[in-house]
Nucleic acid binder design. Sequence first.
RNA 1: GCGAGGGUGGCUGAGCGGCCAAAGGCGGCGGGCUUAAGACCCGCUCCCGAAGGGGUCCAUGGGUUCGAAUCCCAUCCCUCGCACCA
Length: 898
Amino acid sequence: MSPPQSGTTMAAESEKRECGFNHTEIEPAWQEAWDEADVFAIPDDAEDPAYVLAMFPYTSGNLHMGHVRNYTITDAFARFERMRGEAVLHPMGWDSFGLPAENAAEDRDTNPRDWTLSCMDSMREQLTRMGFGYDWDRELATCDPDYYRWNQWLFQRFQDAGLVERQAAELNWCPSCETVLADEQVEGEDELCWRCDTPIEHREMDQWFLTITDYAEELYEALDDLDDWPNNVREMQRNWIGKQEGASVAFDISGYDEVDIFTTRLDTIYGATYFSLAPGHPVAQEIAEDNDEVAEYIEMAAAADEDDLDVTSGVFTGEYAVNPATGEEIPVYVADYVLTDIGTGALYAVPGHDDRDHEFASAHDIPIQQVVEPAEDAEADPEDIDVQEAAYTEDGLLINSGEFDGLESEAARDRFVSEFDGEHRTEYNLRDWGISRQRYWGTPIPMVWCNECGAVPVPEEDLPVELPEFVQTTGNPLDATEDWKHTTCPECGGPAERETDTMDTFIGSSWYFLRYVSPDLEDAPFDSERASDWMPVDQYVGGSEHATMHLIYARFFTKVLDDIDLIDGVREPFENLTTQGMVLGEDGLKMSKSRGNGVSPQRIIDEYGADTARLFIMEAAQPEKEFAWDSEGVRSAHDFLQSLYTLATEYSRGEVSTGEGSTIADYVAREIDATAASATSEYEDFRFNHALQAVRELVSLLRRYREVTAVDPGTFENGLVTATKLLAPVAPHVAEEIWAKLGNDGLLAEAGWPAAEAPEDYDLERRLIEDTREDVRDIVETVGIEDPAEITLAVAPAWKHDVADVARDAENVVPAVMQNEDLQRHGEDAADFAKDLAARGHVDQFLSPERELATLQRAAWLIEREFEADVAVLSAKDAPDDLASKAEPGRPAIDIVE
RNA sequence: GCGAGGGUGGCUGAGCGGCCAAAGGCGGCGGGCUUAAGACCCGCUCCCGAAGGGGUCCAUGGGUUCGAAUCCCAUCCCUCGCACCA
């Protein structure tokens, strides 16, 4: 008869459950404990804390895997720094203004404020359940009047500093969102709205601008010194700012104003065979007044969609421009390929040396003139160049350029500036920052329009200009709220209207990292002195989608704030930047609703707990790399946590048999130290996956240790504690639980980081052990030894080490060795060994014979265990001569008896 | 087209002048534990080899070096940014 199956299974399972942890119980409990102990609060008087920051989330209402990854990274790092004894500022807040709230309000019959606040509540709850440790006392929300009043205040300070302008501009208008979009918010060739994919239109409107272009040069140049930023982000910013060094020169067009051109190739000016104006250029417009053909073309170009026009489209104006270099008259065209807002919107065209000019000239039968030929060291042969066929766009030597023939391009560019009365000029792609948005849910721009006085700033004491109640309307709700809109002029007291545009939400995210420093301050946006001490942010982590917009704006704000003395000597906000990679679906593709491959953090927390999710994410890849979700990996992370917990539980219950210290204990002790050391440096380098791998290896070692012998309690417990601490930043709840289980007082979150010194020459020890084990395996296998009974390891004699030491630095190894009196005594043997070493080309570092002996003795148990054989480790003098003679430094002689 | 970053064993992915036939994981194979399975543990996983040896190898081709996966040059391919930018 056999016992009922179900009975045994249930018993086994309940026993297992008894040993394991239940995440639904321990996680909330420890979250509460941290909260009660105020672990994550940082006092205002902290000095230069480690500032660890994740990009604050937009208040969409739910956390996705990208957030979870982002915040796990900063939380782990913040916890790591805290355990190392650093004061840590790790705050959280809400990017809570913006269009989606208005849309959501419309869909759900509520208003943006209520909707946003409820989103914040639910996200805060989710963050807490993940066990992220924030100083919630410093929480901020950009939609809070106490926050956005400072957007308004700062707007006025920018105004004082001459950084605000009202400009008419052709702007990107999304007909669906009914708002102006920044260039950055228009996507792709088709120019689609980033939010709703509607094709955008262009409208001419008056807008408020921040003149970020005043800082273009510094924003560009300072990128070189942001050494701890990813290269690609810096490169993207360089592209975005688009610095171009060149020169401008004036051309006369008879009957019209002088026209300035901008060029980076002034050396080719002798080859200019026509002149071209953008359709939007004022002189083109002027010409159009008297020239129907030009007028027609300009109209057509303005109406045409991008790419509708051929690159060779253009029209001859009948006018001629004088080339200041040659004095020749060249025909003036209006051509769409010349862009109004690039350079000066006018250029002289050199078809011989520019591809687009070449194409245009060919289409319009304009002469092509070569003025540069390849220099001697160039790849191209001057004989092979035929500019009638294709433009030669490289630098070279000038020809057909009058007295300047033979000059190098570079030199010519410099020389021609003065020669032709031009000036050196640097152009940037960066445009001023249009911040006006025709939306409700944003920061009201604190200006009043008065018929008498024009645009008047709202006085400081009247800030904030608060948003009125939301009303449903097709246009801008602020425009529709009459009693809000109508006010009196602060200057003349007459009737006036408020500015109804609100600010771009990127204003709010351009300085939020400063507000965290003093979130409740009532008379300034932030405490200047403290901010100057606490800034810059030491570690900033977020998605690379913010590489240009947010990160440039925040840099711009920081520089301005420094210049207007609100902070002192902080010119860059983010010292280290990490852009985290995407979390892909299990199929390796981007998670999306349509694919249905999304994984909800909520579900993972419910099923496995926050620690498992955090551990899996951190083990999966380095922060900047993308990785695919893998339920196998999640399970493995969970199993690991359970097994460590179980091991600790068993130990704490006295179920692990204990005994005296031994060489095995010594071995384990060294591994513990080495693990702490390597995990620490991996944490420092943001390579959490490597750190966690080391922890897994340590835990595995502890399990084997316990299996093979009665453990030394001090060593074993130290191993458990060390593994737990190293794991704590990533899996904090389980770690606390184990910490308590092992009888420790206080919170692990506040405990000290393990001392992190690897034993001296640990790497050499490791090598010796691994090489030796490898060699034993190799022998057993190659020889085909079925069942090894006895394995003897003999360390090389001291004199061989001496030979190696001499050989390592010697020019001529053999003579150097044989000239050494002590070594001469070993005669032929020494010479032979020296020859061997010489043949290898270089000599490794080795441990001393004594260290080798001790190292192998400590590691002998691993070999014993693996081969189930007795292992003897002998010094050279204790070993039989014929065995010892085969040993070399770093390589013991091995004898295996079956 | 311009720029940045890459191409490593069945897959993934570390390494970035000698310690590299190249970590870890996954997958596969064999063994241990177990009534069995899972978990766990021990190996193997480019080719040859009856004592730790030899050969070939890190996209392709050339080069530097006593020595290259690692440095340089060229080519091909991938990914990402920018792009009618004067």
